[in-house]
Amino acid sequence: MVYFTMKREALYDITPAYAPYNRIRRSLIIVVYIAISIAAIIYSHFSDRTFLGDPLVDGYTSQVHYIWNYFDGNNSILDLDPLLWIHALRAFIAYIFVSLEDIGGSPLVSFVLLLLTAPIVKIFASLKRGYLIFLLPIVEAGVSDRTFLVIISVSYLIIFIRNGNPYLYLPISFVFSNLSSGSVMNSLFISTTVARNYQKNSFSLYVYITSLAASFVISALDKYQGFSEERAGYDSTVYGASGFVAILSRSTIFVSFVDGNYARVLLYVIIAAVALGLMIFAIKNRNYRGYVMIMLSVIPSLIFEGLGFMSLLVPILLFLAGEKLPWRPAKPEKAVE
């Protein structure tokens, strides 16, 4: 009787008769993912994408070159201002991937990026709509390497929430999060809410939160002071604006609209609408209520920075694939004596 009253979703996952089918499905998802990844790697060989862009146009590349030139002069990292410590971390990541690029070109960089998604693929392979993970190598082929690392940063935080293992996932999440102030903001928001409910006894999590908070405060204060004092490189897109208003005017979605890049604006609006729609669904469904805070972080991303949007890609796909995330983990049932 219990067998026939089980929900179809539960039956799909745990009924022994379905076990061979589930194993085949998981294997098929992994095989297809590898095939799409190979296609993405081949595509990167014919593209003109490089890890760093033009330093006169790309702010991230400009930061990296400044740090590299600083160390070329045999200067000490201890003499750097706090903000430049963050830039030094970004420059270190760039050094690793530019070195890979020098060895094997863009295909080697793409291979390493997609290799980093292995823990993510493992989760999707066990989900009913796990085929959604096929979007990830397609995204990798279409965005910058830095953007994809930002996507991985929040993904690894979600994996930590789900599986633990802080010594592997949290350091990588922290390092890659610092590639964008938007992903730092999202990771900090998620880690202080959902992650604390699931891994509240993890000392590593509190180190992660404290380090992210310090990084965010340093970046936020520097930006506010820069725009308030109208320093070079902190130019508002709205004439006469300064301080917080100037910061808002430099948001990716606002700049994209001003520049006439309506396709990017539309993409961000779609992501925001999907995330907020999922948030409403999550509020009403206790099995997905942990996603509420994750999807809520789309609001500051909409206001401040576009990369914050992209960092939420995997959580959105996990939600759509059917990965449950209650607000708090279920308490283990006591054995019946």
Results as ranks from 00 to 15, higher is better:
G105F: 05
D58Q: 09
W85A: 03
S37M: 06
L114Q: 04
I120A: 06
I34P: 02
L78Y: 12
A40F: 00
L115F: 15
S99H: 05
E140V: 05
L108K: 09
S44I: 00
I123D: 10
D54P: 06
L108S: 08
R23K: 13
L56K: 14
F46G: 06
L84F: 14
S44V: 00
D48F: 07
I38K: 01
L114G: 02
Y18S: 08
A19P: 00
I77E: 01
L116V: 10
Y131G: 14
P55C: 07
P107T: 03
I36A: 12
G53A: 08
S37T: 11
I93R: 01
T61N: 07
I42S: 06
A17V: 12
P107H: 04
L113A: 06
L56G: 12
V31A: 15
S37A: 14
I42V: 15
Y60A: 04
F92S: 15
W85L: 11
Y18R: 13
I34N: 01
L132N: 09
S106Y: 09
L78K: 09
G104H: 10
Y33P: 01
P20Y: 08
S62E: 12
R129I: 00
A141Q: 03
V98H: 03
A39C: 13
D102K: 14
K122M: 12
Y43Q: 03
I30L: 10
D58E: 14
Y131V: 08
Y131E: 10
V31Q: 08
